[in-house]
Nucleic acid binder design. Structure first.
Lengths: 132, 132
DNA sequence: CTTGACCTTCCAGTCACTGGAACCCCTATC
DNA sequence: GATAGGGGTTCCAGTGACTGGAAGGTCAAG
């Protein structure tokens, strides 16, 4: 199977697939003309990585997860630990974003949004004490 | 004032300050020995940018905000519009993260996390139909 | 006069792609 | 046989916003 078909079937862009090969995440075979020849296993791996990425796992974690997937002697505890760490990262990001959101929403609520130049948003950025 | 003092007083790392100069966000003067000489105005700008960045504004938005801050004829509506767009970005990120979090938490809950290899997390990554 | 803490520039790396140029391959049609 | 098109290939550069590090200049203190 050529890279275009794989991209269509997995939803992973061709450029991204080439990148994954470059970093040795997948190792598709090659045909005589130099084209990449993807097996069903390659395809399945790509789907797996695509889903892991959609859950926010960094590429290096995807590599680990792929290895675990291949490893019949793995323990589910190991997988779970990785997933829990990722959950922690997500929670940290959500918390940071919520913090930002709170402040920003507060500032927006205080801003008249009219033609005058007076703006609590700018005031707060410039000196939060004065604009609190 | 030298860059180190400015870094300490604003909380913006020296490396970052140099970067901000490189992209023309600030334009500190220079002394005879080639050192950057920061004015109180430069310092204030850096504080402003630091705070805007903490609210998640991209650097280019910070540039716009700085210009608006300097512009006596600005309308608060313009500032508010920028802030609202930023709020939208934040909300979108939070939503995406929450989506990830939900799926991941569900998967973690379903995983025994013991010594056996059977793992719903890997199963779902490999084929979500089978592991739903 | 040397030590150490500053400062300078420039280059490389981060993360995970993405765009684009230049060029090759294959099939179908005129 | 020429050509058009829709594949594929490689390599280089850019994204955002820094960050680390090397090589070297400057300055005040002891």
């Amino acid at each position: 199977m050529n890279i275009g078909d794989v991209a269509r079937r997995t939803g992973v862009p061709a450029k991204t697939i080439r990148y994954y090969e470059e970093i040795d995440l997948i190792r598709p075979a090659r045909t005589g003309n130099g084209y990449r020849a993807f097996s069903e296993a390659d395809l399945h791996k790509l789907v797996f990585v695509g889903r892991a990425r959609a859950l926010g796992f960094p590429v290096e974690q995807c590599r680990t997860l792929l290895a675990l997937w291949d490893d019949e002697t793995r323990s589910s505890a190991e997988v779970k630990r990785i997933a829990e760490r990722q959950l922690g990262e997500i929670d940290a990001k959500i918390a940071a974003l919520r913090e930002m959101r709170g402040t920003l929403a507060h500032l927006i609520g205080a801003c008249a949004g009219d033609a005058r130049p007076d703006c609590p948003i700018l005031e707060s950025l410039s000196d939060p004490e004065a604009a609190a």
